[in-house]
Design a protein around this nucleic acid. Structure first.
Length: 488
RNA sequence: CGGGAUGUAGCGCAGUCCGGUAGCGCACCUGUUUUGGGAACAGGGGGUCCCAGGUUCAAAUCCUGGUAUCCCGACCA
């Protein structure tokens, strides 16, 4: 074995880093906390972008682009917001370098100090709402439904590729509405789009819920989240959609005249998913052999390998299959590289997560068959050449379905109910996973539980049965269970 | 940002304690033989020993400072 992946059982976070590196998704860079997204990793992101972008457009949104830099004073306009983000901002203070008079390369030119410092956006609410103020006068200007694809910077203490990097790519939607109900409906609709994307494309089941006061976005009234359970029993916040109320409208004085000629503040939402989704994708499906990708997001869905090497007969069959699959809209590559042998190719494509491998050799052709291997279960089968294209097409769909079922089963097996604190703490300590338990609704209790178990309330599930109960920690009254887990 | 570890060829590492010719495996290049799950043999190329100072006749090795990565905590998408 030329490329070893640390087994998950031995060291889960090393396994994750090995996958990222050996599947060619990302590299470390010269800049602390920032990664280089490599072609294979970026191709996955491009597929995600294409699908989500279409969904946003189909629901009436348009794309725009706002500046990377935000005047420092903007950030402090919304009190909660500044509390949330001030600690992790990169700040631009000067606009010029000059040669060091002492001869040590370049120094910051002290004469080029900015009058007002700029921050690199950690999120764009402030710059966008300062702009919306000029764009909105009348109810006729509403709703304003804008999304942007951008990079943002959050100066985090500890980073991990895709899951938490100093700079990351994302989309952020920012909408303005005439009424409270319309804004809430918008944030819920986006929440649904995110959940559907996670399950239908990423094959990653998510729990839809609302964040507690403590966990919600700085400046939001409500934060809706999708939470996914990773293989190591930790929860990943995979996407959030915020109902912002009139907080930003008031901070940036964004008003409109309604149909009765009365001035009102507009109602707002914002919502985003990021390259973190790729981290979720890795940790939901992959195994000790490498990356496992759901067919709908795999940059390459099918690879055909001649065994042991290309020859005219094999080429003919392979090229016919390529043509047939392409006609079905399936991405496929016939790997005719003679410099590496079949076994090597098998391992490489498994590492990269290609969902289906078709191996064609002389002996297969004599029997009019090909060997078809699926990445998710690593099963191999001999399939008659007649109807092979249709077989592969169906197999891709089965793999997509199987990945979702498998991760749903995993989540089911790792979701527990706890009714006393000892049991609760024991589950989190020994198994991890989602723990559904009663909570008295106070931030104080939530923080205390976090201190004792390191688990936080991931969300209050939207679909939860209301049941009287007693808080797991304080014994105070509770009206329903909430979902706890250790989080990424 | 606190504690710990690491940084030597593209990758993984030995050498550092005890200063004295820069090494191993994989990868790479050339050739030959091979070929149904990461081929074998032979020959060959490749180094700012993380960076900057210092000590010394002499530094990968000792000292000081910086920097990057990983692990554990606090913070977070």
């Amino acid at each position: 074995m030329a490329k070893e992946i640390t087994p998950r059982s031995q060291d889960y976070s090393q396994w994750y880093l090995d996958i990222v590196k050996k599947a060619g998704l990302a590299d470390n860079s010269a800049v602390r906390g920032c990664m280089v997204i490599k072609p294979h990793g970026f191709a996955i992101w491009e597929k995600m972008v294409a699908i989500l972008d279409q969904k946003f457009k189909d629901s009436g949104h348009v794309n725009a682009y706002f500046p990377l830099f935000i005047p420092k004073s903007f950030l402090s306009r919304e009190a909660q917001h500044v509390d949330g983000f001030a600690k992790e901002c990169a700040v631009v203070t000067h606009h010029r370098l000059k040669a060091d008079p002492n001869g040590n390369g370049l120094i910051v030119d002290p004469d080029a100090k900015l009058e007002e410092e700029l921050i690199v956006r950690p999120t764009s609410e402030t710059i966008i709402w300062s702009t919306y103020k000029d764009w909105i006068q009348s109810y006729r200007d509403l709703p304003l439904l804008i999304n942007q694809w951008a990079n943002v910077v959050r100066w985090e203490m500890r980073t991990r590729p895709f899951l938490r990097t100093t700079e990351f790519l994302w989309q952020e939607g920012h909408t303005a509405h005439a009424t409270r109900d319309e804004a809430i409906a918008e944030s819920l609709m986006i929440h649904d789009i995110y959940a559907d994307f996670a399950e239908s494309y990423m094959a990653m089941p998510v729990v839809k819920g609302v964040k507690t006061v403590n966990e919600r976005f700085a400046g939001a009234i409500d934060t809706y989240t999708i939470e996914a359970l990773m293989q190591d029993g930790r929860s990943l916040q995979a996407g959030t959609s915020h109902f912002l109320g009139q907080n930003f409208a008031k901070a940036f004085d964004v008003t409109f005249l309604n149909e009765n000629n009365q001035k009102e503040f507009v109602w707002a939402t914002s919502w985003g998913v990021s390259t973190r989704l790729i981290g979720g994708l890795i940790m939901t499906h992959s195994d000790d052999e490498g990356l496992v990708l759901p067919p709908k997001l795999a940059p390459l869905q099918v690879v055909i390998i001649p065994v042991p090497k290309p020859d005219p007969l094999i080429n003919e069959v392979a090229e016919k299959l390529v043509k047939e699959l392409k006609a079905k809209g399936i991405s496929v590559k016939y790997d005719t590289d003679e410099k590496s042998r079949p076994g090597f190719k098998y391992a490489e494509y498994e590492m990269k997560g290609v969902p289906v491998r078709v191996a064609i050799g002389q002996r297969d052709l004599e029997k009019n068959q090909a060997e078809v291997a699926r990445r998710d279960t690593r099963e191999k089968e001999f399939i008659p050449l007649d109807g092979l294209g249709t077989y592969v097409e169906n197999l891709l769909q089965h793999i997509q379905e199987n990945l979702l079922l498998r991760s749903l089963r995993f989540r089911q097996e790792n979701t527990f109910e706890a009714d006393d604190f000892a049991t609760f703490a024991d589950i989190l300590d020994k198994k991890g996973g989602f723990v559904s338990a009663h909570w008295d609704g106070t931030t104080e209790t939530e923080l205390k539980i976090k201190e004792l178990t390191k688990a936080t309330i991931r969300c209050i599930p939207l679909e939860r049965k209301m049941e009287e109960g007693k808080c797991i920690l304080t014994g105070n009254k509770s009206e329903g269970r909430v979902l706890f887990a250790k989080a990424y």
